[in-house]
Simulated scan of single mutants.
Amino acid sequence: MDEYLCDVYPDPYTNDLVSENPSSPKDQCFNVEIKHTETYVINARNFLSCEESQYHSFKNIPRDEMMQETTILGWLSSMTVPKDAHKVMVAKILDCARRMTLNKDKKVLYMRVDINITIATEDCDYSDDDNDDSDSDDDNDEDEEHRFVPASNSSIEELETINEQEGCVNCGKCAICFEDINVVSVQMPCLHKFHKNCIVDWLKISGFCPLCRFPMPSEEGEKEC
């Protein structure tokens, strides 16, 4: 696993749509919607990645049950979330739940959890039955044409340096070398972070973000301007 992120927040969209009625429970309960997204990075240097998302709903969870770590751990395990991500995610979900229960007037509390996991792997299906071989060859030729155009020196020098808090759990791993990002990282305009040496070496060969293919300015582009 390269990195994992977890955003937890009250779901304002559902809260606005649903009005409670006399059948609402006497005690507070939770309806939890979880979006679990896994991004598989096959070869960062060749911009190969694919993404899969699944949605899970847990309804009418009593307040006392919601406040137990075992409840949330059961959800994460059923979604095959890696165990080393459990501790951080459980803490975030419990913290949000506690804050939501402060609203004593609400009996049904709606929570949204977005889990994003990036995984380095060599297995992913990129076949596209809707495209014939000629289209695939054309796409590959176009990729090859643009893949090795380096970014301009000025755009590399302007990359933002980020000083994270030491021990930050969201710093993740560098998608180029797959090693932990410790404290200092460099952030691309697309907001992806890497080791400085890794991304500088990368951009001197290819001016595209290794994760999302965001294009950096090139020397050729600057000359044309």
Rank of each mutant, 00 (worst) to 15 (best):
L102A: 11
V90D: 03
I119W: 10
A91S: 02
D114R: 06
A97S: 14
P82S: 05
I117S: 09
K106T: 07
I93V: 05
I117E: 11
R112I: 05
I115R: 02
D105Q: 10
L109H: 01
K92P: 00
C96I: 00
T118Q: 13
D105N: 07
K106H: 10
D84E: 12
S77D: 15
T118M: 14
R98V: 05
R99E: 10
A85Q: 05
I119G: 05
V113H: 00
D95L: 08
M111C: 13
V108Y: 03
M100T: 06
L94V: 04
A85L: 08
K87Y: 03
Y110F: 15
I115T: 02
I117R: 11
A97V: 05
K87Q: 09
D105W: 12
H86P: 07
A91P: 01
K104Q: 11
M100K: 01
N116M: 12
A91H: 03
V113Y: 07
S78A: 02
V113L: 04
N103W: 04
I115A: 05
D84L: 14
K106L: 06
K106W: 11
K87A: 12
I115C: 04
V113D: 04
I119V: 15
T101S: 07
S78M: 03
A91W: 01
D84W: 11
I115S: 07
C96S: 05
D84M: 14
K87M: 01
K92E: 05
A91K: 08
A97F: 04
K87D: 06
M100V: 07
D114P: 05
V90K: 11
V113N: 04
T118K: 12
I119A: 10
D105Y: 10
N116P: 00
T118L: 11
C96K: 03
I115N: 09
N116G: 12
A91N: 05
V108W: 02
A120P: 09
N103V: 10
T118F: 10
M79L: 15
V88C: 13
I93T: 00
S78V: 04
K106Y: 05
K83Y: 04
D84Y: 13
D95T: 13
I117W: 07
D114I: 14
T80C: 12
